[in-house]
């Protein structure tokens, strides 16, 4: 717990029309840790994640990355900060007009002067990490859901990010493929010592990849603790969520 805070969310509030999604989120994330933010679908987990990289502007509060406020930043400076991040989108968000290899290397192509051969070699190395080298020349539409997720993961880590954001990395995958993705996230974490921030409602995934778990409910963090604490907690929100019960303080619609 002594490590420095790399990302700090302070008093974050966000509404879309009449819907108050975030109502004052406070959370600190330390360098190198893997934190999982759990919460029911539609509770604002993804919105929180998108604030961290400046894809949403908060109504109130701020997000600090390495001590710099990213929520009120000029576009050009924001792009510099974003280069520290990798983002795995929920539906993979691969560019369907490009091959898998081009998808993986697009960040490098745009930000560094690399030759086509170098770009391809880098794409091969990244795809090797996710066991997808054979698909380098395929279009995303030719891949299965799990393969798309792996390709998107290779793209997210291609720029060697300090912080990787995972938006529901296992949603929509079968349990075995989900486990493959969990293993990959864990091994990338160990290998590159990147800070991982994952939002999910998949508890199996959360237990597997987290050092620390926080729970978001009604726009606030209602629990924040180590994995062992989650299992033993008497917090009624966490209890209801991890046991998957319809009855409890969390109202389902």
């Amino acid at each position: 717990m002594s490590k420095e805070v790399v990302l700090s969310v302070q008093g974050l509030e966000k509404s879309f029309g009449d819907q108050h999604v975030l109502r004052g989120v406070d959370i600190d994330i330390r360098r190198g840790e893997s934190i999982v933010i759990i919460g029911p679908s539609g509770c604002g987990k993804s919105v929180l994640l998108r604030h961290m990289i400046g894809l949403h502007q908060p109504d109130k509060g701020a997000v600090y990355v390495d001590g710099v406020d990213v929520s009120h930043m000029r576009r050009r400076d924001l792009y510099e900060v974003r280069k520290k991040f990798g983002f795995l989108f929920q539906a993979s968000a691969l560019f369907d007009s490009m091959t898998v290899g081009e998808n993986v290397s697009i960040g490098l192509k745009e930000h560094f002067h690399l030759s086509p051969e170098e770009l391809r070699r880098t794409a091969e190395v990244q795809l090797d990490l996710v066991n997808l080298r054979s698909a380098i020349d395929k279009k995303p539409s030719e891949l299965s859901g799990g393969m798309r997720k792996r390709a998107a993961l290779a793209r997210a880590i291609a720029m060697d990010p300090e912080i990787i954001l995972y938006d529901e990395p296992t949603t929509g995958l079968d349990p075995i493929t989900a486990d493959v993705i969990n293993d990959l996230i864990r091994s990338l974490q160990k290998r590159f010592h990147a800070t991982s921030i994952t939002v999910t409602h998949d508890m199996t995934s959360a237990y597997k990849i987290a050092d620390r778990i926080a729970m978001l409910h009604e726009g606030r963090i209602v629990f924040d603790g180590a994995v062992e604490d989650v299992k033993g907690t008497e917090n009624p929100y966490v209890q209801q969520f991890i046991c998957g019960k319809a009855e409890g303080p969390i109202q389902t619609v």
């Binding site: 998108r50 990289i53 894809l55 576009r75 792009y79 510099e80 974003r82 280069k83 991040f85 983002f87 989108f89 929920q90 539906a91 968000a93 691969l94 560019f95 369907d96 697009i106 960040g107 745009e110 930000h111 793209r155 720029m159």
Partner: peptide, 21 residues
């Protein structure tokens, strides 16, 4: 289609200006 499948957000997240690109 790129917007609703988050491809434009993915570009922006990789620090690629979607207006330029």
């Amino acid at each position: 289609t790129m917007k609703v499948t988050e491809q434009i957000d993915a570009l922006e997240a990789m620090a690629i200006d979607s207006t330029r690109y």
